[in-house]
Amino acid sequence: MSALFLRDATVRRGGQTVLDSASLAVEPGEVVGVVGPNGAGKTTLLRAALGLARLDAGRAELAGRDVARLTDPERARLAAYLPQARHVGWNMAAGRVASLGAFHLPAAAARAAAAAALARVGMSGLEDRGVLEMSGGERARVLLARLLVTGAPLLIADEPAAGLDPDAQLLALELFREEAARGAAVVLTLHDLGLAARFCDRLAVLSGGRVVAAGPAAEALQPDILGQAFSLDGRLEPTPDGPILIARRRGGWS
């Protein structure tokens, strides 16, 4: 049974179709990247899958159940979400923020889980630091730790690499691979196509709200798709360390 399943999902907003008959299935143990230019509908696809954006047509399921019919606790047991906005309302300690991923556990167990997750994201010993006193990248790591603390069978992260330094980007993606290895299904939106190609088992390419290509990176990021979806002239170049993207803007500087 797919951890996440979208069939012909359509979302309209203000007279515009922002997600247009999108279909996607994500299985336990795999990392799926959702890529596409700004405004392609990536965040809407994630929100639709989670029941945060109402579908005008189509179907969204988590673990085989209609997401619109799940109660809040049921949905939380099936999926956890890291939104793109890294906003935290108050200057709470990093350990406390991370522990919110396990609020249902006894306080000591939640604290321990938070400390372990903060260590995984490279923030060991910073449990007591206020998150509003941190840099944007550090705060993003704390919020990633909260996502990991949930231990949910489906992890959905919107731009988890945004605002992170190169080392932290690689660390974040390695952590998602670790989560997939423990059996979780992982869905990420990413702008760095090189990272997406290297760390994701499959990619779904969105353009104008439609899934225009899906599959392993070598198939989904064919030169014609790069041109159609991203207006790029380019190709994926295999290297011993994984594929890298070589591209330039159409008609741009070469």
Binding site: L52, D72, A76, Y81, V88, M92, L100, F103, H104, L143
Partner: peptide
């Protein structure tokens, strides 16, 4: 508990499992 979770924003809170409404 809901106020604490709202620190992370409406959407994260609504997916936390707490009956936010």
């Amino acid at each position: 508990r809901g106020l604490v979770m709202l620190t992370l924003g409406e959407e994260t809170a609504s997916l936390s499992g707490l009956p936010m409404t």
